[in-house]
């Protein structure tokens, strides 16, 4: 089935570049419900790509498929031209994709610092023997991990709270820690699932800065967010999902004026 306004339409300068991430005809269903139907997405390097749509449209499902938590019923996911469809999540992280979760999934009983340190897992090696031996190499690696962890905490502004247990953080800080934890793995692509949810205006402004910083590091951002002002102000490209299908895509301006999008949001009570 042809999908109108699919994001595959590219400008000339982009066609020469391989997209960083490509979803081809991805479908998945839960029981009888078709959560995604033949979704095509292309995310270009260095851009901020936003995925919007009403509740239950399938946005988080897209993230779950990209990060390997769900396996699509059909279709392919390509990252840097490597087929990662159905790969284990930890292997996908290894390749350079990380994410945050809509319903915060921090390691609650660990400290902020430890949460960030676990984020460095893929970029370090020491195992059980190293743990017992604490050889020089291991100690050096621990030093690097700690340094990296403090660095990403700095990015989101949580350095001060590095020894607090994650569960004792304020809600907005928990969301920031999720971002820091994801950044720690030095990804090329980061998936942010509703990072602004539950944040106040001030925190949201801080978040915009953080996302800009992330882009500044050369990391590509995929964003799911309900706050339209937030999305439209920050995105390079916006794709709209409705009932598991892509109904529009383009620059923030194009999407905002697209009748199909307005229909989708007005057709259902705006949430």
């Amino acid at each position: 089935m042809p999908v109108s306004g699919q994001p595959a339409k590219m400008t000339g300068e982009c066609r020469s570049m391989q997209p960083l991430l490509k979803l081809e005809q991805v479908s998945i269903n839960f029981g009888g419900l078709a959560a995604l139907e033949s979704v095509d997405i292309q995310v270009e390097r260095g851009k901020i790509f936003s995925l919007i749509g009403p509740n239950g449209a399938g946005k988080s499902t897209v993230f779950n498929i990209i990060s390997g938590i769900y396996r699509p019923a059909s279709g392919r996911v390509l990252f840097k031209n490597i087929d990662i469809t159905g790969r284990k999540p930890y292997l996908i992280t290894d390749l350079g994709i990380t994410r945050t979760f809509q319903n915060i999934r921090l390691f609650k009983n660990l400290t902020v610092l430890d949460n960030a340190r676990i984020g460095c897992h893929t970029r370090s090696r020491a195992g059980f023997i190293g743990a017992l031996g604490r050889f020089k190499k291991v100690r050096e690696e621990e030093g690097l991990i700690r340094g990296r962890a403090m660095e990403v905490l700095e990015v989101v502004g949580l350095t001060e709270k590095s020894n607090v247990l994650a569960k004792n953080l304020a809600y907005g800080d928990q969301r920031k820690l999720e971002i820091a934890r994801a950044l720690a793995s030095s990804p090329e692509l980061i998936l942010l699932d509703e990072p602004a949810a539950g944040m106040n205006v001030l925190e949201k402004q801080g978040l915009v800065d953080v996302i800009e910083k992330i882009r500044g590091m050369g990391i590509t951002v995929m964003l799911v967010e309900h706050d339209m002002k937030f999305v439209m102000s920050i995105s390079d490209y916006v794709a709209v999902l409705n009932y598991g299908m892509l109904i529009a895509g383009g620059s923030p301006d194009q999407v905002q004026n697209n009748p199909a999008v307005i229909e989708a949001y007005l057709g259902r009570e705006v949430g």
């Binding site: 990060s67 390997g68 938590i69 284990k88 999540p89 930890y90 992280t93 290894d94 990380t98 994410r99 979760f101 999934r105 921090l106 390691f107 609650k108 009983n109 660990l110 676990i118 984020g119 897992h121 893929t122 934890r181 994801a182 793995s185």
Partner: peptide, 13 residues
């Protein structure tokens, strides 16, 4: 603490 989150952080659970 959270096996799914651990896996997405690169831990081969």
């Amino acid at each position: 603490e959270d096996e799914i989150a651990a896996e997405t952080m690169g831990v081969n659970a």
